[in-house]
Design a protein around this nucleic acid. Structure first.
Length: 694
DNA sequence: ATAGGGTTAG
């Protein structure tokens, strides 16, 4: 117990003109003018007025004009600031996100045996949760109980509920909630939010019901929160009922419930209803714009998502970090490199390029566009890499065939003290698989048993089956699979896939049967099987399966390649004649084939999976969709500054085309990036980043 | 005192 304050001399009697300063300071506080407050303060000092006798007034004036630091220096000079001053200092620190200072002041209060009031308690918990100080907050909880404020004051209990929610302690939050006799909207809303944030959507909807039956009217915050629970649990029935309640209680044109409504509809798969709600918003704010862009993205309407982003800018909406990361996700999903760069430029201009969500979205986007170097550059701008950006970059190296770097990053993750999650392991194991790094893969996988809480999941086993199988160790792959208690479709399909690579017909048939047991309608399995027969030259079986496929009414996905030129998408199928520049493209293709033959290109007809005569076989190879796309890319980039061509294919790239594109990259002296269904191939100067292993 | 929108993997 400090004695200095208690021993300080008695305050001087208030001077005659203190009313003058009181009214001045009241005015300063009302007008929120820092300059005025400082002038008055100075005047007090110059006239020799004992200004600290009005310290509490001065603090109030400084705080309302926004200067916590001025207030603090008065506060520190005062022998005994009023509890209200303590409390408002603490509040101001919290409002300015200076939680550390808030907590320090609070602790001093306790040490000096001061009794915090309900205003202090109602804010201090937020500071503790900001700083992730669970024990500190729990101690403050105890103090609020001692003072008798916890169950009596809804302000205090609401913020306590929020505090426990931030630490995922729903049990404690519920106890607080139950302890309050006179519950109100805010308390109930805080608990609803808690349940939704922790994946307990049913509970959230239940609390909402309890609220209604105890005649506590919901407000805009409540509606906004409970709708999240409806969306997450795809509970359209409750969602629609709540939509009605919102309209009835007059919140129909309030922005937060509207935003939640449109998200709820899209989570329930009703994107048209989302758009309807959005169109009803008179002045969409940044949150609403971001929400609708996200809805379109998740409904796989990427083009519309992008045009929504454009209309946002046209309507002078102000994108923030949330908006940019969402829109980058759209670019990533379509692998739109130019668009991604535009958003990167926007981020740089607006200073949002330091936001970690934006950074990890950029890493992902550049990675998904095959530009590993750009992804790395953005990643390196992070002072402290986080799990998400590390995962993105690992995936990016893995997909481009640089398994060593992926593993190096994985080891770096652990050195940095960042705990790898399931996705990290999937990414790094897939990277090993992509690069044929058997021993590294085994090492990482074994770490999962010691360092990773739940151990490997089916996805991780699938990675290992792929890794072992592609390295030709089919028996080991099978053994690995046998260790899984409940193998799923993905696992069997992976085994089937590696059987195809090595032409293991018997095992393939077995794996295919297993896939079809789990999902009789899996068309990919039929196609894989037919391809295995074709590669073994068993044409009769091929025909059988193809008939079966037709009978079952599957429409087999034909091979398609595409390329973006001048923001337009150009698609090609094998032997496609439909492109307006068709003649030029075929001419270009013939020339490229001639030039590559000069470098030793020999068409490899073993990749033709249909029976035809020799001439036809060779010609059919020449008109593969990826060759057409490359030819078009070469044609349209000629004479431009662009030094890389990116093409896409919905299936895996064919082996003959792979050889050919390597040589084309040498002929034209540019990088060719090809993304197939599984990964990237970066061709440069006659070589491919995959090292011919894929 | 309570609220709506965001990043990886599958």
């Amino acid at each position: 117990m400090p004695t200095s304050k208690a021993a300080s001399p008695p305050r001087p009697p208030p001077p005659a003109n203190s009313n003058f300063y009181i009214s001045l300071l009241n005015q300063c506080a009302a007008e929120k003018s820092l300059a005025q407050t400082r002038r008055v303060h100075l005047h007090m000092k110059q006239t020799g007025f004992p200004h600290l006798s009005l310290g509490n007034k001065l603090i109030a004036a400084y705080l309302s004009s926004g200067s916590v630091d001025d207030a603090r220096s008065v506060f520190d000079d005062m022998p005994q600031p009023h509890v209200v001053s303590w409390s408002s200092m603490i509040s101001s620190y919290i409002r300015q996100e200076r939680s550390q200072e808030a907590v320090a002041l609070y602790k001093r209060m306790i040490i000096e045996n001061l009794v915090p009031d309900e205003f202090t308690f109602s804010r201090i918990f937020r500071a503790f949760s900001d700083l992730r100080l669970f024990n500190g907050g729990r101690a403050a909880h105890g103090q609020s109980v001692v003072v008798g404020l916890q169950a009596e004051n809804v302000y205090v209990s609401s913020s306590l509920v929020d505090f426990y929610v931030q630490f995922g302690r729903l049990g404690e939050a519920r106890i607080i909630y139950d302890s309050v006799k006179a519950k109100d909207v805010v308390l109930s809303t805080a608990l609803i939010v808690g349940y939704t944030k922790n994946g307990e959507d049913r509970q959230a909807i239940e609390v909402f019901g309890e609220m209604l039956s105890s005649y506590i009217p919901a407000n805009d915050f409540t509606f906004a929160s409970v709708l999240i629970a409806c969306g997450n649990s795809e509970d359209l029935t409750s969602g629609r009922l709540i939509h009605g309640a919102i309209l009835k209680s007059g919140f129909g044109s309030w922005i937060a419930p509207q935003t939640s409504l449109l998200s709820m509809y899209s989570k329930c798969g009703l994107i048209e209803d989302s758009l309807k709600v959005f169109n009803g918003i008179v002045n969409p704010n940044t949150v609403a714009w971001t929400a609708i862009i996200g809805c379109l993205l998740h409904s796989h309407r990427e083009e519309e998502a992008l045009s929504m982003f454009r209309s946002m800018i046209l309507n002078s909406g102000a994108p923030n970090a949330f908006t940019l990361s969402t829109t980058l996700s759209v670019c990533s999903s379509l692998a739109l490199f130019e668009q991604g760069m535009l958003i990167h430029a926007y981020a740089l201009k607006s200073g949002l390029d330091a936001n970690r969500f934006v950074i990890s979205a950029l890493v992902d986007t550049y990675g998904k566009c095959g530009h590993v170097g750009m992804a790395r550059m953005v990643f390196d701008s992070l002072s402290a890499p986080d799990l998400i950006s590390l995962n993105s970059l690992i995936n990016c190296y893995g997909q481009s065939g640089n398994g060593e770097e992926a593993v190096r990053l994985f080891d770096m993750t652990r050195r940095l003290g960042v705990e790898p999650n399931d996705a990290t392991y999937v990414n790094v194991l897939a990277a090993c698989s992509n690069s044929g790094m058997l021993e590294e893969g085994r090492r990482v996988f074994s770490l999962m048993f010691t360092d990773h809480r739940p151990g490997p999941s089916n996805d991780h086993y699938a990675c290992m089956v792929g890794l072992l199988g592609r390295a030709g160790r089919l028996e080991e792959a099978e053994e690995m699979l046998s260790k899984v208690q409940k193998p799923d479709k993905v696992l069997w399909r992976t085994l089937l896939g590696v059987c195809k690579i090595h032409g293991k017909l018997d095992m393939a048939k077995w794996a295919a049967r297993k896939v079809l047991e789990l999902d009789p309608g899996d068309e990919g399995t039929y196609i894989l099987l037919s391809n295995i027969y074709a590669s073994l030259g068993q044409w009769k079986e091929v025909i059988n399966i193809k008939c079966l496929i037709r009978e079952m009414g599957f429409k087999k996905d034909p091979a398609v390649s595409w390329i973006y030129v001048n923001k337009e998408i150009h698609t090609f199928m094998a032997g496609d004649q439909s492109h307006p520049d068709g003649e030029l493209i075929y001419k270009e293709l013939e020339e490229l084939i001639e030039k590559t033959k000069g470098l030793g290109y020999v068409p490899d007809t073993s990749f033709v999976l249909q029976q035809m005569d020799e001439f036809e076989t060779e010609r059919s190879l020449f008109y593969h969709s990826e060759k057409l796309a490359v030819a078009f890319g070469v044609l349209s980039s000629r004479g431009t500054a662009c030094n890389s061509i990116t093409i896409f294919k919905n299936l895996r790239v064919c082996g003959d085309c792979h050889n050919w594109i390597k040589l084309v990259s040498k002929v034209i002296g540019k990088e060719i990036i090809a993304r197939d269904a599984k990964r990237f191939h970066n061709y440069r100067d006659g070589l491919c980043s995959c090292g011919d292993y894929w």
